[in-house]
């Protein structure tokens, strides 16, 4: 079984910051907007290098989204930065009308998604954002798994013409994808080969899926792990090809099972190849305060939960 090495824990938001810094040097049309969370979003370096292209809007997210939409008129490529909660739920109508319906080339970059935001608790831990964003026509939805992939995705979305929601997180997690990777929007990455069960994971759950596959392997179960960094457009073919071989699937995400990756996968399977599916996701609930690791365990978002789901899926074949 192919294994992956953690080159050292790093936060995905720093991957975004590093990508933005590089974009700032590479593309003079890239502008960055922030709603009073420059440090949290790791946008400091861009701000320092390009003060004229950095726009501090204050605690006014609705205005930030509108300004970003307006800046595309004149050829700019705006990257907005704030927490996932304030990037989506708080500004849904602004994104819907001024960005998505208007077809504006705005990159909505959202940190601190999910329960791994930790101690701040449920007011800030959005678990509904993937659903909100994927329902908007024309919106691309990406949830990256580690530092390297988040950096690569940040660079890639600048080249994509159209609105994008890029979701990442707060805690330091395993960094295991290649440093020099090319990020292809909408293209799943197969991480391990297996015959017994397909595990499709996104965001922080990808590393957990790899850990689960390792443990399952020791029990004689062979799991095919696929990193779905792009939830929309979904790589239908990668999923269908894999389940044709394995006959069952687990979806894993740091999000409510309603509206998340799991439902997108279920739609594809229901239409083309109905397949037993187990969902690793939050169970229509809000989060709470705690450390990210504690919350992952309590809300069933860890390697153990994925192993359990894999066995349940196999049993249903």
């Amino acid at each position: 079984m192919k294994t992956y090495t953690n080159t050292g824990n790093k936060d995905t938001r720093s991957g975004f910051g590093a990508g933005l810094t590089e974009l700032g040097k590479k593309n003079e049309n890239v502008v960055a907007l922030c709603a009073d969370l420059t440090g949290s979003l790791k946008m400091d370096e861009f701000k320092e290098n390009h003060p004229e292209r950095f726009f501090q809007v204050g605690i006014a997210e609705a205005n930030m989204i509108g300004i970003a939409a307006g800046m595309t008129i004149g050829g700019k490529i705006p990257f907005t930065g704030t927490f996932a909660n304030f990037s989506t739920g708080r500004v849904y109508d602004q994104i819907r009308q001024s960005v998505a319906y208007s077809g504006k080339n705005v990159k909505i970059c959202a940190s601190h998604a999910g329960v791994t935001l930790g101690e701040d608790g449920a007011t800030h831990q959005i678990l509904e954002d993937i659903g909100l964003m994927k329902m908007l026509p024309g919106m691309t939805v990406i949830n990256t798994c580690d530092f390297n992939q988040t950096k690569a995705a940040t660079l890639a979305i600048a080249e994509h013409d159209g609105p994008v929601y890029l979701r990442f997180g707060r805690p330091k997690v395993a960094n295991f994808t290649p440093e020099d990777q090319t990020f292809e929007i909408g293209k799943a990455v197969q991480l391990t080969e297996g015959d017994d069960v397909t595990i499709v994971a996104t965001g922080h759950l990808v590393w957990e899926a790899l850990e689960a596959a390792k443990a399952l392997h020791e029990e004689g179960i062979s799991a095919e792990v696929i990193n779905i960094h792009t939830i929309k457009p979904l790589d239908d073919k990668a999923i269908l090809d894999s389940v044709a071989k394995t006959g069952c699937i687990v979806t894993a995400e740091e999000h409510n099972y309603l509206g998340g990756l799991g439902e997108s996968v279920a739609r594809v399977l229901a239409k083309h190849n109905p397949t037993p599916q187990e969902f690793v996701a939050t169970n229509d609930t809000f989060g709470e305060s705690g450390t990210p690791a504690q919350l992952m365990v309590k809300y069933g978002l860890d390697s153990a939960a994925i192993q359990k789901a894999a066995k349940a899926a196999i049993k249903r074949k």
Binding site: F55, A62, N63, M64, I65, G66, I67, A68, A69, G70, M71, T72, I73, G74, P78, D93, Q94, R96, Q97, S98, Y101, S102, K104
Partner: peptide
Amino acid sequence: IASGSLGQGMSVAIGAAE
């Protein structure tokens, strides 16, 4: 820009002005 849901146009105009 699309408009209809009210209150969004001034932000957009500011963006275009910037």
